[in-house]
Design a protein around this nucleic acid. Structure first.
Lengths: 323, 323
DNA sequence: CTGTTAGCGCGTTCAC
DNA sequence: GTGAACGCGCTAACAG
């Protein structure tokens, strides 16, 4: 019994000959170790929980792939739960994941509230936030600087001579994709001494159709913008098509830029100029950080565990010099 | 001890007053049931394994969402494993999933070989194939009729007066997206008494770029096709852009159709005419079937468990009457 | 309706 | 280098 355990777990204290015999028996009997029993005895399940807003959204599915690849590399499996950024659902799945004794938790969601933090604290397993961060910055996280990314995007427009720049924003309740990117827009304009025109800001819901709708509104303005900054690529693509459907040429008559760099960005005409957010890497780095935390290779929570990944402007064909 | 177990598991044999006291104690102590211990004792983990080729591929991530929604509804969680259609990796994850004592398995992959079936058999938990099927049709599965879907797509072209129809196929080793769709193409042409021209068939790798490359090849032919049937939407979109980049108008000068109906299909110009495959439903129905099998509500494997979901031609703007 | 007793299949001492 | 004994936290029978 114990010797078999040693063999299966690669414990060196086994005579090679015995080891061989055990392996033969394993083969002959079709023995398969029971990971549940092992988990109970060893208090480790080699499983991590990941809560994600929506796996069918390409942004998150790329992050998920990054997570799974690294998890795999360290011999972890992942339990995946969609929570649609609904706080109540998020808390619920965090609890069931904890009941299942996951060795760690990766959280991707909307705002990280005090209730979330309480839920995390009821367990002793490490938590890493992925593509979000709590306001107090007390929980380890990996993300990009959304505000700076938006700032850089708007700057591209500014440097191309645009001054009438509209924004298709996400909801300001959303800290990362919504609020932070809006702040980046404001600050870029302020830095250029351009007053904010409230008519130039409209809230979308991140979807293609909403990008189209908001854009139509901009076209009805007395003083049309000459460029549009969308908080996300999907809305930007909606904007481009709305523009084209109205007979406007992009980028000649209207420039469009956004943040994300989803795969589709290079699969539309004109190809979308955007600020790339390294989705796969965010997942991969977050998972790597979690493995360190699970092995206690690093302090529980310190500034060192707040990682900001770099973003990058990808120049394609949806931005032109203002005519 | 036992009474607590009854309360937690909603066993009716508990006096309401006692139940209340137990709940209070649970609250006060911050007790959280250990699902691993429960799994060991009850031999049920309320967890199902899902092996998927690549979660970052939008086709599969939609299926995954369907799976997870239904799993959630029946209080199951899912362990997700990417296997990239690599047989060796597939077999490996099937085994680790089985070691983790999942209550059932959902398999999405490339070909289902004898080795796969052997691996499934080493465990007694039910297996459902998702968007694939084994040749012998012995394992429960849910999918569409790929051959018929391709047949219908090519027929749309035929009925629009096209006779010179090229195909961007997937590899013929791939039973569903590759071989079956190619067969549908052949049969549609045969039914219309059009001989197969081998120059009109080229293999792509399902990606956008490959759709572009293959299309360039078709344009170099002495006798150009007037329409292209792509095995998947992504390659079709590549084809459209390749055509447009060469100065051809779609659909006026070349029609394009495919199978899948990924979200992007309606997010390109012209919008893609395609045969819709109900990705979300395939996942949802497969998971539902699996729950029935896990509860032994239905026979282990019978013809009843081979479900074929309907597909549907979505007419958009990439196909025109032959001029 | 409630408490007692055995396992579930493993890892981990501790002797040998 | 190997085996025996115990316990992980819970469910499932069985008494009471």
């Amino acid at each position: 019994m114990a010797t078999v355990s040693r063999v299966v777990n690669n414990n060196p204290n086994v005579k090679p000959q015995t080891r061989k015999k055990v392996f033969e028996a394993i083969e002959r009997l079709g023995y398969r170790p029971n990971a549940v029993a092992r988990g109970l005895a060893s208090k480790k399940t080699t499983t991590v929980g990941v809560v994600i807003p929506d796996i069918s959204n390409s942004i998150f599915s790329e992050v998920a792939r990054g997570i799974e690849d690294i998890a795999n590399m360290y011999h972890y499996n992942i339990i995946l739960c969609n929570a649609d950024k609904k706080k109540e659902k998020e808390i619920r799945v965090i609890n069931t994941l904890l009941e299942k004794q996951v060795d760690g938790l990766l959280f991707m969601g909307g705002a990280v509230t005090e209730d979330h933090i309480q839920a995390f604290k009821t367990s002793s397993v490490p938590v890493v936030l992925c593509a979000t961060a709590d306001e107090q910055r007390v929980i380890p996280s990996v993300d990009i600087d959304h505000e700076k990314a938006a700032f850089d995007a708007v700057n591209v427009l500014l440097q191309s001579g645009h001054t009438k720049i509209a924004m298709i924003s996400g909801t300001l309740q959303d800290p990362a994709n919504g609020y932070a990117r809006y702040q980046g827009y404001r600050k870029a304009l302020e830095a250029a001494n351009i007053p904010i025109d409230e008519d130039y800001v409209r809230i979308g819901n991140y979807r293609y159709e909403s990008g189209m709708d908001v854009t139509k509104h901009f076209l009805e303005l007395d003083e049309r913008p000459t460029a549009i900054f969308a908080a996300t690529d999907e809305m930007a693509i909606g904007a481009i098509h709305s523009l084209q459907d109205s007979g406007l040429r992009v980028p000649e008559e209207m420039s469009v830029i956004s943040v994300d760099n989803i795969r589709m960005a290079s699969m539309v005409r004109p190809q979308l100029t955007t600020v790339a957010q390294p989705m796969y890497d965010i997942g991969a780095v977050a998972m790597r950080l979690l493995t360190k935390l699970m092995n206690k290779e690093t302090k529980d929570a310190s500034e060192l565990t707040q990682v900001i990944l770099p973003h990058e402007v990808i120049h394609r064909n949806s931005v032109a010099q203002r005519s």
